[in-house]
Lab assay of single mutants.
Amino acid sequence: FSITQFVRNLGLEHLMDIFEREQITLRVLVEMGHKELKEIGINAYGHREKLIKGVERLI
């Protein structure tokens, strides 16, 4: 299971460039909250919320 699959499953594949540029893996994403996601350029609250909720389902 990769970050690419995870992001695609959430319908947020347009954010993949950010994850690749910042070298974010699923392991790193698990540790990130709204503040960190915003810092790397994910400005939409809804997108950040989707990512965080998606990660919570993985754990």
Results as ranks from 00 to 15, higher is better:
F1W: 12
F1Y: 11
F1N: 10
F1S: 11
F1K: 06
S2C: 13
S2L: 08
I3H: 01
I3M: 13
I3S: 01
T4G: 14
T4P: 08
T4W: 12
T4N: 12
V7L: 15
V7R: 00
R8C: 10
R8D: 05
R8K: 14
R8E: 10
R8M: 12
R8N: 09
R8Y: 14
N9P: 04
N9Q: 14
N9D: 15
N9H: 13
N9R: 12
L10N: 03
L10Y: 04
L10P: 00
L10C: 06
L10T: 03
G11M: 05
G11S: 06
L12A: 02
L12G: 01
L12Y: 02
E13F: 10
E13L: 12
E13G: 12
H14S: 11
H14C: 12
H14A: 09
L15E: 01
L15V: 06
L15M: 06
L15C: 05
L15P: 00
L15Y: 10
L15W: 04
M16C: 09
M16Y: 06
M16Q: 09
M16T: 10
D17V: 14
D17M: 10
D17S: 12
D17L: 11
D17Q: 11
I18G: 01
I18Y: 05
I18N: 04
I18E: 01
F19S: 00
F19C: 03
F19A: 01
F19R: 00
F19N: 01
E20Q: 13
E20C: 09
E20H: 10
E20Y: 11
E20D: 12
E20M: 11
R21W: 05
R21F: 06
R21Y: 05
E22R: 11
E22P: 03
E22V: 03
E22T: 06
E22S: 09
E22F: 07
E22K: 12
E22M: 05
Q23I: 05
Q23L: 07
Q23N: 14
Q23S: 12
Q23E: 07
I24Q: 00
I24W: 05
I24H: 02
T25E: 06
T25S: 11
T25F: 03
T25M: 03
L26W: 14
L26G: 01
L26E: 03
L26P: 04
R27M: 10
R27G: 12
V28R: 15
V28I: 14
V28E: 14
V28K: 15
V28P: 02
V28G: 12
L29S: 02
L29P: 00
L29K: 02
L29A: 02
L29T: 04
V30K: 14
V30F: 13
E31F: 13
E31Q: 15
E31V: 13
E31S: 15
E31L: 13
M32H: 02
M32F: 07
M32N: 02
M32W: 06
G33K: 08
G33M: 02
G33I: 02
G33A: 04
G33T: 07
H34C: 03
H34W: 05
H34G: 02
K35C: 08
K35N: 11
E36M: 03
E36G: 06
L37Y: 05
L37V: 03
L37P: 00
L37I: 03
L37H: 01
K38L: 13
K38S: 10
K38R: 09
I40V: 09
I40W: 03
I40S: 04
I40T: 03
I40A: 06
I40N: 01
I40K: 06
G41K: 05
G41D: 02
G41L: 04
G41P: 01
I42S: 02
I42K: 04
I42T: 01
N43S: 14
N43Q: 13
N43L: 15
N43Y: 12
N43H: 14
A44I: 13
A44P: 07
A44M: 11
A44D: 15
A44W: 10
A44Q: 15
Y45H: 13
Y45T: 07
Y45N: 06
G46H: 15
G46S: 15
H47Q: 13
H47S: 14
H47L: 11
H47V: 15
R48D: 01
R48E: 01
R48I: 08
R48A: 05
E49H: 10
E49I: 13
K50I: 14
K50Y: 05
K50T: 13
K50V: 10
L51F: 05
L51N: 00
L51W: 02
L51A: 02
I52G: 00
I52K: 04
I52C: 06
K53R: 13
K53V: 09
K53H: 08
G54I: 05
G54D: 04
G54S: 08
V55S: 08
V55F: 10
V55K: 04
E56Y: 07
E56V: 09
E56R: 14
E56L: 11
E56D: 07
E56S: 10
E56F: 08
R57D: 12
R57M: 14
R57E: 13
R57A: 15
R57V: 10
L58E: 06
I59M: 14
I59F: 13
I59C: 14
I59H: 09
